[in-house]
Write a protein that binds this DNA or RNA. Structure first.
Lengths: 261, 261
DNA sequence: CCTCGTCAGCTGGTCAGACCAGTACAGGGA
DNA sequence: TCCCTGTACTGGTCTGACCAGCTGACGAGG
């Protein structure tokens, strides 16, 4: 006979589980309202602090939102990628995850996202990719012609457009997991690594890089529109690899190289 | 002049942020102990319920663990993949993520993990892959010869070994993000989809599938040991694809096919 | 000397009751 | 009709209390 270790279940966990189960099973939908705390303490037969601890957990994990004074009670929120970012960021910092691993994972995801996007049926999602690529191209021309604006502003706008381009590819892949995970990794990288990358860069170099990225994006877009799955994957990984090539250590590049080509 | 929207920060969030920041910046390490709640309410100048709400959040997200009566206070935990499983599972259920997407994501991750494992230097991690493949082979032979045991027991042991095999590959990839994400998706799939898959299966069919999986694992192991990155990726995806081929709808298979080969 | 049961002093878990600031909404004033 | 205000709630926070459980020290027994 086998025994099981005694696991004590705190009261708040029971409440959290019941509410999350209600959401999972479709009895509670985003936008629905939970009863007030004083009502909940009756239905669960616990005191208000216990109810509050449960609500705190649901609040902190992005399941519900509540405002003081709102007589409609806490609102059930739709899922957000942000819910994944917290643990991802924690893992990155605490678990000894290096920047190289983060980049490697990103390269891997973007490559597969491009492949799936190429395999997907043409439609609105693919048009958004083209629009994002066009916006990048537009910025590249504007920056080259006018030459106005500080380097940091240009770099920021550039980064946002590039991020949006990749986001549109992930969206076109048709896989929400890929989409959300990619977004979380993307933002984690922004937070973690941006300060050490591309800070000290003069304007001409930035413009050159911008032009190159715009061209790369155009090529990748074409591959995806052509439905060239293998080519899209290869182009996406090569683009990102080249993007980082001059600014990473040999050790970090070595981690990325197996995924290229 | 630009104004910012008023964001009300609850007291507990300040405490949570401070503790998480301490962990991020290396002032608090896993295994360290936090002061008791009554001590914390002094240092943060708040009441005990507020401290408790903060501790609840940290407890629920797997950052700390606490037991009643322990005078050493709450313990800071190391990061666990389980922290990602919660939001992943929630996303799967609530955000309309289908089983096809989950499988697609898994196929994608396992393929890339095998590629990276093949690219990695030989070492202890690769030996563990061989050991897991050998264990699968052993079970296949034992099941074929003795024929004892119920089908469910056999299926359970089979599933655990196969899961361990894939886990060892992810570990050998050298990327913790890949490892953790893969594990989370794996377990999410187990929870979500197992009841609808492989339930009604007779023993001979199960044995045949077991033998096939053991052979597949052996081939994949060889590719990884040979350092054949492309071959490892292809073999891994094909194996998983064939594993599911007879038990999924055409629509689901169509989602997987772009990743195969 | 070592082992083991006992017990005090703490811990976290839970409760009851209270006050305050903030919100929604109905009803009265313009 | 519109705006304003009051009211009756809400959640946020605090105080104070009790209980069950753990740890570690102490002392009885070997």
């Amino acid at each position: 006979m086998r025994f099981e270790p005694v696991k004590k279940v705190n009261s708040y966990e029971i409440i959290v589980d019941q509410i999350e189960e209600g959401i999972r099973e479709g009895r509670l939908h985003p936008g629905d309202r939970l009863p007030g705390e004083r009502k909940l303490m009756e239905t669960f037969s616990v005191s208000r602090p216990t109810v509050r601890e449960a609500m705190r957990v649901l609040h902190a994990t992005g399941v519900v939102s509540s405002r003081a004074g709102d007589p409609r009670g806490a609102e059930i929120l739709p899922f957000t990628p942000q819910a994944l970012e917290r643990p991802l960021a924690r893992m990155t910092h605490q678990h000894g995850t290096t920047r190289a691993e983060l980049l490697q994972f990103r390269l891997l995801l973007e490559g597969q996202a491009s492949l799936l996007a190429a395999a997907a049926d043409p439609g609105e999602a693919k048009q958004r990719i083209s629009a994002c690529a066009a916006a990048l191209d537009d910025l590249a021309h504007r920056a080259g012609a006018a030459g106005a604006g500080a380097a940091t502003d240009l770099a920021t706008e550039f980064g946002e457009l590039l991020s949006g381009f990749h986001s549109s590819i992930r969206a076109a892949s048709g896989n929400q997991l890929l989409q959300v995970t990619g977004q979380a990794v993307d933002e984690a990288l922004t937070t973690v690594a941006r300060q050490r990358l591309g800070e000290e860069e003069d304007v001409p170099a930035l413009r050159a890089r911008l032009r190159r990225s715009a061209e790369d994006a155009a090529i990748l877009t074409q591959r995806i529109r052509d439905g060239d799955t293998g080519g899209a994957r290869r182009t996406a990984t090569e683009n990102i690899y080249r993007f980082y090539k001059d600014r990473l250590s040999d050790l970090e590049l070595k981690a990325l190289s197996p995924l290229v080509g």
